[in-house]
Design a protein around this nucleic acid. Structure first.
Lengths: 188, 188
DNA sequence: TGGTACATGTAACATGTTACATGATTAG
DNA sequence: CTAATCATGTAACATGTTACATGTACCA
């Protein structure tokens, strides 16, 4: 039952458990859907955190169900730990963008190769933006603009992907290749 | 002399060493200046990678100089390893944004507290944007728009920070607090 | 009845972070 | 002479990733 502050990944699991008991599997799915956009975690990690938090008394494992499903419930200590995590000043974000590294050392690549890479990544970002915008309009039309917090994080995703696409489109032709990607999914 | 592919951090060190021998200290400073914007590394890590790469024959440690400075030079094997790293498809970027986590669980915080946090982070981003724009105009006015790759990564930083600020400014008042930050450094 | 999705978990390793120990050099 | 900065490095630990092993239940 160590008392060092929670890490953000563990804290977010506790956050989801406020809504009721969930299994490791459920937590992975929930996290990917709700915070996967700006916080990644693996299944392995989730099980590890759950085990550790159970040991620390922050969550309590329930009875194994049908498929060996083992639900975890947050405890009073878990709520307290979560609350004190939430009070802390969030740290600065970190972005790790391998494409930008490759680009930064672009001098060391044949130009066509770089352009091809850049093109593929642009397409991937366009697809992600499209996905975000679909869920966004789905929320609006369904009239369920209920959770302003979820909406704010989604808006971040949209804004981010738009900015990235706009950046791609302003890359000098020498880098991104001649008249590639005839467009169709640009910003705004 | 393991042959598993380089990790991106090690690869970027090799990238810098193409320009000549550098010490661990120099590499930390160089990396922070040139890729620190989208790739973070710590001093400890740099020394560890250098040691490992020296063992693997990718770099060669030189004589210790004045302050025990020990320059590392890239070897032929190092160049080859770097080249094959550069050929690989860069992985997807990962963003870890603690503020968004806190925001996603905003329901669990007193509103004033959240607004205060948000306000401080907005200010930090405004400051970073200002920094980027200073270096950007410095490059332009100095007439040294030489390295298009460095410029492209800088442009990413500018675009990113502007998008983040615009996002802050579109947050619902309930989240960001009433009429805070009278503004002055908004986008465009 | 066979494949897919569900579900849990471990092991091994890679990467990243924090804290500390040690000392040289330089600037004031 | 002394404080700040430069410089290297280690130790301990936290976090993240990949690969694998095992089996269950659902659905076509």
């Amino acid at each position: 039952m160590s008392d060092r502050p929670l890490n953000a990944t563990a804290a977010s699991l506790l956050g989801f458990l406020h809504e009721g008991p969930l299994t490791g599997w459920d937590l992975v799915a929930t996290a990917q859907g709700r915070i996967g956009n700006f916080w990644s975690l693996t299944q392995s990690q989730v099980y590890r955190e759950l085990t550790a938090m159970a040991e620390a008394g922050l969550v309590a494992a329930g009875e194994r169900g049908p498929r060996d499903r083992r639900p975890y419930a947050i405890t009073a200590a878990g709520r307290a730990a979560f609350a004190s995590w939430a009070e802390r000043e969030p740290g600065p974000e970190s972005i790790r963008f391998p494409l930008l590294l490759t680009l930064a050392f672009g001098r060391h690549l044949p130009p066509g190769r770089l352009a091809a890479i850049v093109g593929r990544h642009r397409a991937a970002h366009a697809a992600r933006l499209a996905g975000y915008e679909r869920t966004r309009t789905a929320i609006e039309t369904a009239g369920m603009g209920d959770d302003p917090y979820a909406q704010a994080t989604l808006e971040f995703g949209v804004g981010y992907e738009r900015a990235v696409l706009a950046w791609f489109d302003r890359l000098p032709p020498a880098i991104r290749g001649a008249g590639e990607w005839p467009d169709g999914a640009a910003a705004e």
